[in-house]
């Protein structure tokens, strides 16, 4: 098992690893035949080292929602429409 994502998938499915101490975790990762270099990074929980090891340098954007439909979005240089609330006029419920 060499791929980092393979290792992470396995870890994600192992409930016993959730209870483990650092020593137990190291032992279990060894039993899973995880290479020492990956073991070290996983146990240290080093995000940047993990990204380097996996050749994962992308900045991920994860917005998939919009506050309104296209035709409902404010237009004209992104300024609110005249009937929309101006700053400081938000009503309390």
């Amino acid at each position: 098992m060499n791929s980092i994502t393979d290792v992470l998938e396995k870890i994600g499915q192992q409930s016993n690893l959730k209870y483990s101490t650092e020593v137990d975790c190291e032992l279990q990762l060894t039993e899973m035949r995880v290479p020492a270099v990956i073991r070290k990074v996983l146990i240290a929980n080093d995000k940047s080292e993990l990204a380097q090891l996996s050749d994962n340098k992308k900045d991920i954007i994860c917005y998939v929602s919009a506050p309104a439909k296209e035709h409902e979005m404010p237009k004209d240089d992104n300024k609110p429409a005249e009937d929309e609330p101006k700053q400081g006029e938000q009503e309390s419920a």
Partner: peptide
């Protein structure tokens, strides 16, 4: 379209034609 580069790699291993929406 996922929230982590490693998750994207993981999905990429499941099918020969995975295209990121990033």
């Amino acid at each position: 379209l996922v929230s982590d580069g490693l998750v994207e790699q993981w999905i990429g291993q499941m099918n020969p034609d995975v295209r990121s929406l990033q």
